[in-house]
Design a protein around this nucleic acid. Structure first.
Lengths: 135, 135
DNA sequence: ATGTTAATGTAGCCTAGGCTACAAAGCTAG
DNA sequence: CTAGCTTTGTAGCCTAGGCTACATTAACAT
């Protein structure tokens, strides 16, 4: 009889990592650009309703990526900041690579959004090294 | 006041296309290899319970990708077969490309699983052409 | 200081995908 | 031909992410 938790964790760590990456990255950028990250802006940036954003943010808080205080801007924890930086870097690398092989900018930008969450560290390293050698 | 249907369609056509691709591809392969595609085998191959498989399959039937008959093997419609072939081809191309740039086989195989659904036709074409030129 | 607007939060509904537990149908062997 | 295993199907629960509608809080302007 298989313990349910395993499968949970599996999809949770997949799905939820994706939103964790998207949200922390976005929050990081918002803080950089606007000085603070607010729910409205997050929702607007992601093209979703503020309600959905609030719920997801509260889940991410439970998982230790960020901190919320009622009606105050959102801040990233250390864990959240690390994830944001990692995601941003991966995003950039991948984008550069697509452009490098000749994908049109607009297409590359859109494709990266979906692909980035599924690229392992090994593949990322390989890409970096490949671009290094073929410059 | 935004019409709800739009957002629905957006996520539906994303999410559901992913499973449509996975399922049609798998069913296609099962028919090739075993002569027929049964729920148990689909579930086993995807590593999910047969219940989840049944539900998803029934959704895909509603969307015209396949046909089920109670307690009989599953068959693909024309639409389903096209999608399967397209997905298989994209999968292969992407895998070849990752191997080409030097990603270890095991890693490549795993990464492709996630990435493939997010690679546009344009990017796919670009990859093909790039590999053609750099052989 | 009060009234309007913007931001946040709550309730409740939907789809999709995950599960277990149980029920029914079909095969296959005795 | 019946007992038992395998396959398929149903009921019901969970998480995650999407929404609208409504409520509350805060900020701002007059």
């Amino acid at each position: 009889m298989m313990n349910n938790t395993k499968n949970f964790d599996k999809s949770r760590e997949q799905n939820s990592l994706e939103s964790a990456e998207d949200y922390t990255e976005l929050i990081y950028d918002l803080i950089s650009l606007k000085g603070e990250a607010r729910v409205v802006d997050i929702a607007a940036s992601l093209g979703i309703s503020h309600v959905t954003a609030i719920r997801t943010i509260s889940r991410l808080e439970k998982k230790g990526f960020l901190i919320t205080k009622s009606r105050s801007p959102i801040t990233l924890t250390k864990k959240g900041t690390s994830l944001a930086l990692f995601s941003k870097n991966r995003h950039q690398t991948l984008l550069k690579f697509l452009l490098f092989i000749g994908v049109p900018k607009q297409v590359a930008e859109k494709d990266v959004e979906g692909m980035e969450h599924h690229v392992s560290k090994t593949t990322l390293k390989t890409i970096e090294s490949y671009m290094g050698q073929h410059t």
